[in-house]
């Protein structure tokens, strides 16, 4: 795992290898959850992760009438706050919804840069199960960020889970095709981050 960096903090040394993903805890999120998600992103998707210090959830994303945060708004804020090619994954304990959906476990920009995942609805089956669910949803959303749509292979994490029970049925693995595609896109991302386009 990379040492923590924040865009508001001094940039890393020249010889340091930049992480491909920033993991951004939004509100109180336990450190273990962050580390387990980061470890699995690295192990299963080859995404190096930099865990940032926690920051509050963006207050204007709160939907008063629904007592939820708007995941789409959070993603927009994250993209503005963290520019550049590095991907971002927000992690929150608050409940998330979108303007069209009554709730979401996670939300992401398909082929974009940002995703956000909530642990709010993952409880009820013990700490271990909650962590497993969090990891699966985080990896699923980050694969969307890399541009992958839902997959119809039965044994693939990119199947579309409709509820928490279906998340439990998902394997913590991608099918061959999705794995190949993730590898290809992560390599592209790596080259993009290591050699950013010349803006002169």
């Amino acid at each position: 795992m990379m040492p923590s960096t924040d865009p508001e903090m001094p940039p890393p040394e020249d010889d340091a290898v930049a992480a491909l993903v920033r993991l951004i805890p939004l509100g109180p999120v336990d450190e273990l959850s962050c580390q387990v998600v980061a470890g699995n992103l690295q192990a299963l998707m080859d995404l190096t992760v930099d865990i940032l210090p926690p920051r509050p959830v963006f207050p204007d994303a709160f939907m008063e009438a629904r007592r939820q945060f708007d995941a789409v708004k959070i993603i927009k804020h994250l993209a503005e706050r963290f520019p550049g090619p590095t991907l971002g994954l927000g992690l929150t304990g608050s409940d998330l919804g979108t303007p069209v959906l009554t709730y979401v476990l996670g939300e992401s920009q398909l082929g974009g840069r940002m995703a956000v995942v909530s642990t709010y609805r993952l409880t009820g089956a013990g700490a271990q199960r909650k962590l497993e669910r969090l990891v699966k949803i985080s990896l699923h959303e980050m694969a969307h960020v890399l541009g992958l749509g839902h997959c119809w292979q039965p044994q693939c994490l990119m199947r579309s889970p409709r509820n928490v029970a279906q998340v439990d049925e998902l394997p913590l693995a991608f099918c061959d095709t999705c794995r190949y595609e993730i590898g290809r896109r992560v390599r592209n991302l790596f080259h993009q981050i290591q050699s950013p386009p010349d803006r002169s």
Binding site: V72, T98, V100, Q109, L110, G149, H150
Partner: peptide, 13 residues
Amino acid sequence: IRESLAAWLTKDG
């Protein structure tokens, strides 16, 4: 609404 719905449907193919 338009954007959220379009994004959700696109991910589903």
